[in-house]
Amino acid sequence: MIIKDLFINFCIISTFLFFGNALFRSVRNNQHINPLILKISTGIFLGIFGLVQMQFTFKLDNGTLLDLRQIPIIVATVLGGGLTGIITTILISIGRLWFSTSITLVSFFGIANACITFVVAYFVFRAQLSFQRKWLITALLSTLNSLLFFLIWTGFSKGITLLLFMVVLFSSFIFTCVLIERLRRYNQIYDAMSKEVQFDFLTGLYNYRGFMYKYNQLSQEKKIPFSLLLLDIDYFKMINDQYGHSAGDAVLAQFAEVLHNSVRSYDYCFRKGGEEFAIILEYVEEQAEAIRWAETIRKNVEEYKFVIPDGRTVSLTVSLGIGFYPLYSCEELLDKTDRALYEAKKGGRNQFGIAR
């Protein structure tokens, strides 16, 4: 029976952590989600995880019921920090009282055990140790903490009962550690692959694939107004011809920095290819505001001294096209903005044109 209960609990742990990780990964890079809301939501999610685990208990041979409520508390504290851990601990403590047929001293032992688990996890994971060591120390201390409450309540039980208690609890901690470590490695690989697919290796900006992904995403949402800026470095071919391609690469990398520093932290900068760039300014739909941003970028590029590998400096200018959504549908916005960029270049460069 104990093997069956252990298997069920391992399945619950795996399910919650797998789907929780998938959900967290899908929202963590969304710049419109408040980090505080994310921490609170994570705490609630893991609190529910703990409440579910409390329904699948292990029955030891002396009649004592054991559950794994400490695991979601530790996971919440490790992944979300103190606030997330506190929310999970509070939900589990309320659940402990709610599910009790009667409130007794053992109910408060359970709440105290949950609170101590949170404190242990919080302070251990602030130490300068490897993730595995911190988790191992937390697992040992939490097991000993639970064992202490177990002995206070039941007295000294049979040796086999105590051994079973420690094995079930500690093995569950280790299983969770291994699972989280695997998920962390998976996330690292996923992030590396996503970056390679959507980012330009030279400038660090989103590449053309990243541009189309974000542009299509906005067009599907149809809720967020934005301005689209298309940019061309004026006479960039002369840099390559006069100073060489290594100089051109150095200039492109610095140009990307100028763009990144000229807009808001949550705006999107792209290198579409060669010397062609794009910027998406969300919630900028007024023409005057978009013009101010375009003029800021133009001036910053014009005033910047680009350093090439031999130490010399060169100056650049940039031409821009400005388009607006929802003034134009996403289907026609790209073409109209590109035409505005062409007009800016045709009119003498180092200026911007507006989509019409």
Results as ranks from 00 to 15, higher is better:
W98D: 01
I160D: 06
L164T: 15
T161S: 09
L164S: 14
G159K: 03
T101Y: 15
F131E: 06
F165P: 02
G110P: 00
L83R: 06
G155V: 12
F123Q: 06
V120I: 15
A114N: 04
V119I: 15
L129V: 15
S157Q: 05
G82D: 02
I74C: 06
F131H: 00
L144F: 06
S142L: 01
F109R: 08
T88N: 09
L162Y: 13
G110T: 08
T154Y: 15
F125G: 06
K158D: 07
A114G: 10
G82P: 12
F99R: 12
T77W: 09
V106N: 13
S130H: 11
S102V: 13
F165V: 05
Q128W: 13
L129E: 10
A112Q: 14
V120Y: 05
S100Q: 01
W135R: 03
T101F: 14
L164V: 13
G85L: 02
G155F: 15
L162P: 06
I94N: 04
G80P: 08
K134F: 12
T77I: 03
T161E: 12
W153K: 09
F109K: 02
R126Y: 08
S102W: 13
W98F: 11
Q132P: 00
Q132A: 14
F131P: 05
T104W: 10
G159Q: 01
T161G: 07
L144C: 09
L162I: 15
T89W: 01
I87F: 03
S146C: 13
I137A: 09
F123N: 01
A112Y: 02
G95C: 14
L140P: 02
R126A: 03
I111L: 08
G85W: 06
Y122E: 08
S130A: 14
A121T: 13
G110Y: 09
T89G: 09
L141A: 11
V78S: 01
L148E: 04
F99M: 10
L105M: 13
V124W: 09
G85I: 01
I87T: 08
L105H: 08
I92D: 05
L163K: 11
I137V: 15
I116E: 03
A139E: 02
V119C: 02
G81V: 00
T88D: 00
I87R: 07
G81E: 07
I90Q: 02
S130V: 10
R126M: 08
F125D: 04
L162S: 10
L141E: 04
F165E: 02
L148C: 03
L163P: 04
A112M: 12
I92M: 04
V106S: 12
S142V: 06
L97F: 09
I74L: 07
G82T: 12
L140T: 02
V120H: 00
T89M: 15
W153M: 11
T89F: 05
S142G: 12
G81C: 14
S146L: 10
L151E: 08
K158C: 05
T104Y: 09
R126Q: 08
Q132V: 14
L147F: 11
T101S: 12
F150I: 14
V75M: 04
W98H: 07
N145H: 07
T77C: 08
T77E: 04
T84R: 04
F109S: 05
G85C: 05
L91K: 11
A76Q: 08
